[in-house]
């Protein structure tokens, strides 16, 4: 390209760019709206949580966290996550496998049903279990006779959390596995690999980032779920309070430092989840 045509060429590119771009005022007002919205609804509340948690100093923060009720809430939250996340990982992989690899009647209905916990209010999800296992519920009498406690006890919390979090893993895997198809697996089988071997050597490496992502989201929700758990837990201090419930109970008791100290743990969990999520997304797109 010679010296005379070059500037012309550049002008043309700039003109093309302008034609494809929105005017400047649109660009800047959208950026300002977005930033102020995020500041108002995310940054300020998050900052406030941390500010309130430490408002009476580090010692107060620490003593709030080391109260027996808080510790028991943390412990219960961890237990619930430890039970529900592995179960829903297994369920999610099985469901994704069934939906993407087999043809059967009612498949699209099943796919829709998997989304149900997303579309139903968490309070209703909790109520379902009360209606099933509560004292006046379908199995209530039988459970009372055999002295099995589900509602207002840990099993109920685990069940409600299981219900709320079961779509996460399946939702991540189904589109990916649909897009990948099953030819690699068929190829592995034709080369003499067993079904089990094929799953671990071919399927798992291909879905691992999406699977981890799903597990992460599932975990975040399992630890943070409030509505459904609130209905079935009964708010028994030191026994059936998870961290989100403990935050509410402390706040209602005017224990501001205690409430916000517990909230700061949940907030930290959310931030860690976000960082890991971004890292996983980056990893996935850079593969």
């Amino acid at each position: 390209m010679n010296a005379i045509t070059q500037p012309l060429y550049k002008d043309k590119i700039v003109a093309q760019k302008r034609a494809l771009q929105d005017p400047n005022w649109v660009k800047w007002s959208l950026i300002v709206i977005t930033i102020s919205f995020i500041t108002l609804f995310i940054c300020i509340p998050l900052g406030l949580v941390i500010f309130q948690a430490f408002s009476k100093g580090l010692t107060a923060y620490w003593s709030a966290l080391s109260q027996p009720d808080t510790l028991s809430a943390i412990k219960l939250t961890l237990i619930v996550a430890l039970v529900t996340v592995p179960l829903n990982t297994i369920f999610g992989v099985s469901a994704a496998w069934a939906i993407t690899r087999f043809d059967f009647k009612g498949k699209s209905f099943l796919t829709t049903l998997i989304d149900l916990p997303f579309s139903v209010s968490p309070v209703i999800s909790g109520l379902i279990f009360v209606l099933l296992f509560g004292a006046q519920g379908w199995f209530g009498e039988w459970l009372m006779e055999h002295d099995v406690k589900i509602i207002f006890a840990v099993p109920g919390i685990v069940l409600a959390t299981l219900f709320i979090t079961f779509p996460f893993v399946a939702r991540q895997l189904i589109p990916l596995m649909q897009e990948m198809g099953n030819q690699e697996e068929e190829a592995a089988l034709s080369l003499g690999a067993s079904g089990w071997k094929t799953f671990w050597a071919i399927t798992v490496p291909n879905i691992k980032w999406a699977l981890l992502y799903g597990v992460l989201l599932c975990n975040a929700r399992a630890m943070g779920e409030f509505g459904a758990v609130s209905v079935v837990s009964g708010h028994i201090r030191g026994l059936t309070n998870t961290l989100p419930l403990h935050v509410e109970v402390s706040y209602n008791d005017y224990d501001v430092v205690g409430a916000f100290a517990s909230a700061s743990i949940l907030a930290a969990l959310a931030i860690v989840t976000l960082i890991l999520k971004t890292a996983l997304e980056w990893k996935q797109s850079n593969r």
Binding site: Q183, E186, A187, A188, S190, L191
Partner: peptide, 30 residues
């Protein structure tokens, strides 16, 4: 997996997370 056939797919179906060497070695390793 027991028939002892070799199958070549239209869209290759190579194992995307394995090198060329490991792809070819797969049938022997399993």
């Amino acid at each position: 997996s027991q028939r002892g056939i070799g199958f070549v797919f239209q869209h290759y179906a190579l194992f995307r997370h394995m090198t060329v060497f490991e792809n070819v070695a797969f049938g022997l390793r399993v």
